[in-house]
Nucleic acid binder design. Structure first.
Length: 573
DNA sequence: GCCGTTTTCGGCCCGACTGTTTTCAGTCG
C-alpha cells in the first residue's frame, strides 16, 4: 500500500493534537501543523521523493527532524513518536477537540480530573453532571459537550463551491440591503475560489455595526446563532453552513479583506515580511508603532511589504510570496481567453441537447470552436457510439459546419481507455476525427503502477490527444483512483498529449496543485466543461477558477488557441 | 520543531467572543 502525502499529513496532525493535549511547547505543535499543511499541498508524492533520495528539508517548514520522520513513515507506514504519544494520551481525546468549545486545554483537564479516555466516558460524565464541577467548566460548556457528542464521528464537512455560491449571493444581497451597509463581500476560501468551502467569511463596512449584526442573526435562513458581538458574529444556516460576519471601519477595509481572505498560511507569510520591516499587520491595518500606515486597500497592504498585488486564488503560500518580489507571479487566465470547449456531449449519447443546439449555445458564448465528444461503445450506460454511429455523427457535423458561420464544430469522441490500455474504437474511424479525449470509466481499482501503465499505453496510440478527468475523482463522493500523475505528465509531454481540467463542479479534475505541476512540466491543459446540456457550457468559469488556483496563464491552456493553431497542436508526431 | 542580511539561540501572527470569572483563560479563525 503506497503512502500518500495525505497519510503523512494526517499523522503529523495527530501528533500535533496529542502534543497539544499534553501541553507541549506550542511552537513545536505549530511546527507539526505547518508541516502537515506543506505535505498536504505538495503536488509531488513524498514517497517518490524519498525513493529518489531528494533532500526533504528543502521543503518549507520541514527541517532535519521532520525529514527523518517523513522517511520513517514512508518506510514503515507509521511513526514511533505517534505510537509513544498514543500510549500516554488516549487518541480519542484528539477526536474530542472537534466538539465546539473543547480545545486541547479542556480535553487535558477532562482526562486529568475525570479520567476520561473515550467519547463514551465523556458522554457519561456529561450526563451525570460531573463536567460542570471541574474548575473552569460550567453549565454551558457541559451543555455544549452534550450537544456536540453526536457530531464527533462525522468528518469535517466542506461544501462544494458551486453549492455555496447561490447561498452566499443571497445572503450577501440581504446584507447589502441592511441599514448603513456600505461594502459587503465574501472573503475566505470562497474568494480564493477553492473547490470546497468550509464556512463563509463575510466582511462588511458600515456606519453602525449593531444594526447589521441584528439583521444578520435574524436572516431567515439562520438556524443557530453561535456568537454575536459588536464586530463579529457567527451563525449556522439551515444547510449546516457556518457563516462568520465581521464589521470593520472603512479605513481598514483592505487590511481586513486581505486578512479574512487568507489563507492562514499566506497571511502568516505576509506578516512575517511585515515583522522583518518593523511593521505590525492585522485586520485593522498596517502599523508602524501606534501609527496606521496602510489598510484602506489590499494593494496598500502588499505595497507595505514591497510586493505587487497577489490575486486571491494564489494566496495559499505555495510560492506566491517568493515569486511576487521577483516579478514571477503568473498573469492568470480569465474566462475571456477561452476560445472553445473541447469536451461536450449531445443527445446521441447521454447529453440533453442536440448537436445543433449545442453548437448554437457555444456560438452564443463567443466560441470559435466546440468539440463534440460523445461516449464510445464501452460506456454502454450512456449508449456509447460504435464505429458506424460515429461515422454517422461525423457526417452530421460536416453538414452542420457547412451551415454555421461563426463556429466550427470539431469532430471528436470521448474514448474509453480499456483495462489493458487499448482504446475502444478502431484506428480507422479515429483518423477521421479532429481530436479525441480519452478517459478511464471502469476498473478504477487497479494498483498505482497498473493504472499508470494502462493510461500510458493508451497514450501510445497516436490518436490519443487529451486525457479527460485524469484522476476520476468526484468531490466529496469518490476519491481519485491511484495513479502516478508525474509519470503521466512526463509521458504526455513526450508524446505531445494534453491533460484536461474538467470544469464540472463535481469533478474539477485536475486539482489545482496538479495544474501547477503540469505547467511546471510543460504540459498544456485543456479546460473543458464535459457539458451534457447547453446550460453546462457555463461550467467553464469553475474550470477557470481552478486553473487560476493552479497558476495557469493563457499560454498554458490549449483552448485559448485560435482554431488554426489548435489544429497544429493536435497533430502528433 | 523550524529558522537565520540583526540571531546557531531565542525568537516564533494576532485579535474577538464566550464562559467562568472578578481580571482572564480558552477557543476559534
Amino acid at each position: 500500500m503506497p503512502i500518500h502525502n495525505h497519510d503523512i499529513a494526517a499523522i503529523f496532525e495527530q501528533v500535533a493534537d496529542l502534543l497539544e493535549i499534553e501541553n507541549a511547547n506550542p511552537f513545536r505543535v505549530r511546527a507539526y501543523r505547518n508541516a502537515a499543511r506543506t505535505v498536504d499541498s505538495l503536488s509531488q508524492s513524498l514517497a517518490d521523493l524519498v525513493a529518489r533520495g531528494e533532500d526533504l528539508s528543502e521543503l518549507s517548514g520541514i527541517g532535519k527532524d521532520l525529514a527523518c520522520k517523513i522517511k520513517e513513515i514512508v518506510a514503515t507506514g507509521g511513526l514511533q513518536l505517534l505510537a509513544e504519544l498514543e500510549a500516554r494520551t488516549p487518541p480519542e481525546l484528539a477526536e474530542m477537540m472537534k466538539i465546539a468549545g473543547l480545545g486541547a486545554k479542556r480535553v487535558h483537564l477532562l482526562h486529568e480530573k475525570l479520567g476520561i479516555k473515550t467519547a463514551r466516558d465523556l458522554q457519561e460524565a456529561a450526563l451525570t453532571g460531573k463536567i460542570k464541577e471541574i474548575k473552569g467548566f460550567g453549565e454551558k460548556i457541559e451543555e455544549q459537550i452534550k450537544a456536540g457528542l453526536g457530531g464527533i464521528t462525522t468528518e469535517e464537512k466542506r461544501f462544494k463551491l458551486s453549492t455555496v455560491e447561490p447561498v452566499a449571493q443571497a445572503l450577501l444581497g440581504y446584507l447589502k440591503g441592511a441599514p448603513g451597509v456600505k461594502e459587503a463581500i465574501v472573503a475566505g476560501s470562497y474568494r480564493r475560489r477553492k473547490e470546497t468551502v468550509g464556512d463563509l467569511d463575510i466582511l462588511v463596512t458600515c456606519g453602525h455595526s449593531q444594526a447589521v449584526m441584528e439583521a444578520f442573526v435574524n436572516y431567515e435562513d439562520v438556524e443557530k446563532v453561535l456568537a454575536q458581538g459588536d464586530t463579529k458574529s457567527a451563525v449556522v444556516l439551515r444547510s449546516g453552513l457556518q457563516v462568520d460576519l465581521r464589521v470593520v471601519p472603512e479605513e481598514s477595509y483592505g487590511a481586513a479583506l486581505h486578512y479574512f481572505t487568507g489563507s492562514k498560511a499566506h497571511n502568516i507569510a505576509i506578516r512575517h515580511l511585515g515583522v522583518k520591516k518593523g511593521l505590525k499587520i492585522n485586520e485593522y491595518g498596517v502599523f508602524e508603532g501606534e501609527n496606521r500606515v496602510a489598510g484602506k486597500t489590499e494593494a496598500e497592504v502588499f505595497e507595505m511589504v514591497d510586493l505587487p498585488y497577489i490575486e486571491p486564488e494564489l494566496r495559499e503560500n505555495r510560492g506566491e510570496v517568493e515569486a511576487a518580489p521577483k516579478g514571477r507571479l503568473p498573469k492568470l487566465i480569465t474566462l475571456e481567453a477561452i476560445k472553445g470547449d473541447l469536451h461536450a456531449h449531445t443527445k446521441a449519447t447521454d447529453g440533453h441537447n442536440t448537436l445543433e443546439e449545442m453548437a448554437n449555445a457555444a456560438e452564443d458564448r463567443g466560441y470559435e470552436y466546440l468539440a463534440i465528444t460523445n461516449h464510445s461503445k464501452r460506456v454502454s450506460m450512456a449508449h456509447g457510439l460504435n464505429a458506424a454511429d460515429l461515422a454517422a455523427e461525423i457526417a452530421e457535423i460536416d453538414r452542420l459546419n457547412s451551415k454555421l458561420k461563426g463556429l466550427v464544430v470539431l469532430k471528436a469522441i470521448e474514448l474509453d481507455i480499456l483495462a489493458d490500455g487499448a482504446l475502444d474504437l478502431p484506428d480507422e474511424i479515429l483518423q477521421d476525427l479532429d481530436l479525441t479525449v480519452c478517459s478511464v470509466h471502469y476498473n478504477l481499482n487497479l494498483s498505482r503502477d497498473q493504472q499508470t501503465e494502462r493510461i500510458i499505453r493508451a497514450m501510445d496510440n497516436p490518436h490519443f490527444n487529451i486525457l479527460a478527468h485524469p484522476t476520476g475523482r468526484l468531490i466529496n463522493k469518490r476519491d481519485p483512483y491511484e495513479v502516478d500523475l508525474e509519470r503521466l505528465l512526463a509521458a504526455a509531454k513526450e508524446r505531445g498529449c494534453f491533460m484536461e481540467l474538467d470544469a464540472q463542479p463535481d469533478r474539477l479534475d485536475l486539482a489545482d496543485i496538479y495544474c501547477k505541476l503540469a505547467k511546471d512540466m510543460g504540459v498544456k491543459i485543456s479546460i473543458d466543461t464535459d457539458a451534457h446540456s447547453i446550460r453546462d457550457l457555463a461550467f467553464m468559469r469553475y474550470g477557470i477558477d481552478q486553473a487560476r488556483r493552479g497558476w495557469l496563464e493563457p499560454g498554458d491552456v490549449l483552448n485559448t488557441r485560435p482554431l488554426k493553431e489548435l489544429r497544429k497542436l493536435l497533430q502528433r508526431s
